[in-house]
Amino acid sequence: MVESSGEAPSRGRGRPPRLSRGQIVDAAVALVYRDPGAPLTIKRVAEAVESAPMALYRYFPDRDDLLYAVADRVASDMEFDRPTGSSWREELHEWMWMSLEHLRPYPQLLPYITSTRQPAWLPAIMLLTEILAPLELGDEDLALAVALVSTTIVGQATLAARRAPAPEMASVLREALDRADEGARARVGPVLAHLPGAFERLYDEVVESTIAALESLGGAPAGPAHAPGPGRRAVASTPLFSNPSPW
């Protein structure tokens, strides 16, 4: 997934290695991908490119500037081949899953990806408009459709990154429920038992709801529910669109 921008130029004995902005970003993307939970710091990136931290400040004024550049690289790398579904619905379903899987390894970059000022999203937007072409939307509605799909993907990736692991969440909720009255325990207890599985099913439901919203926007007849990806359970297609993204 991470491609190198080439080897560093040769150097004479005793001379510091010559860097480029691209080499630094390559190294930073690789670090985040290998260890998503470790904060990306100037020091770690400098060690990865065998340089002093101060040398990186020639290319990036501060850590935020570096993180924006890394986030832009991750976003611009969303240049997938067009899905091979038999309809725009199947293509969009596959493309939304590919996009989520692409963003999933980079939780700490999501706030920067959502607020980028660079044209990093352009390749993804171009492919998305091709997929949605059969809806024959006007420019204004097509822009709304692109925004709807984009915020769904990034929002769900953000939710997944911030959500506590299912066993931890279940344990905390069970402890809180034990302090509730008997009636509440009877009502909520069975729901808590299914909550971890519900989160596993969530994105398929959100994708189907997004497709339903686009069908309504374009006036297209509703298509059949799409089969979930490998290992995922089928869910009903209901108009329960949810989008927690800050976009």
Rank of each mutant, 00 (worst) to 15 (best):
R201M: 15
R162T: 03
V146A: 05
M96I: 02
D141W: 01
G219C: 11
S150A: 09
M54K: 13
T158A: 10
K43V: 14
V74P: 02
D204R: 14
F241R: 15
H194S: 15
P111W: 10
P111D: 01
P83N: 01
A220K: 09
L132W: 05
L103C: 08
F80R: 04
E175C: 06
P244A: 07
A236G: 14
R179P: 01
A157M: 03
S237V: 15
P36M: 06
L92V: 07
A30H: 04
V172C: 03
P228K: 15
R163M: 08
R185L: 01
P119W: 06
P39E: 11
A227C: 09
M78K: 06
P165D: 01
P53T: 00
A236Y: 06
E182S: 12
Y68P: 00
R162M: 07
R117C: 05
E205V: 04
E208V: 02
T158R: 08
T151Q: 08
P83Y: 04
D72W: 05
A176E: 13
G218V: 12
A69G: 01
G183W: 10
A48P: 04
A147N: 05
F199T: 01
A186K: 13
M78Q: 10
T114W: 09
T152N: 07
A166V: 01
P16C: 08
A222K: 13
R104Y: 00
G85K: 03
L159C: 06
G223N: 10
L66F: 05
A145C: 03
A164G: 08
T151M: 02
G218K: 11
A166T: 02
D62P: 05
E136N: 12
E136C: 11
E47G: 12
L214W: 13
L100S: 00
R73H: 01
A30I: 00
V149T: 00
G22E: 12
L92T: 05
E200Q: 12
P36I: 02
A143Q: 08
E182R: 13
L144M: 09
F60K: 02
P36F: 07
I42L: 15
V29F: 04
V207Q: 09
P239T: 13
Q108K: 04
F80L: 04
M169E: 09
T238S: 14
G218Q: 12
L177K: 07
P230Y: 10
G37S: 06
Y57H: 08
R117K: 12
V149K: 03
L122E: 15
D178C: 09
Y68G: 00
D139Y: 06
A143N: 03
D62C: 06
L173M: 14
A227H: 09
L195V: 12
L142D: 01
A225G: 15
M54T: 14
R18L: 12
I211A: 07
R58T: 09
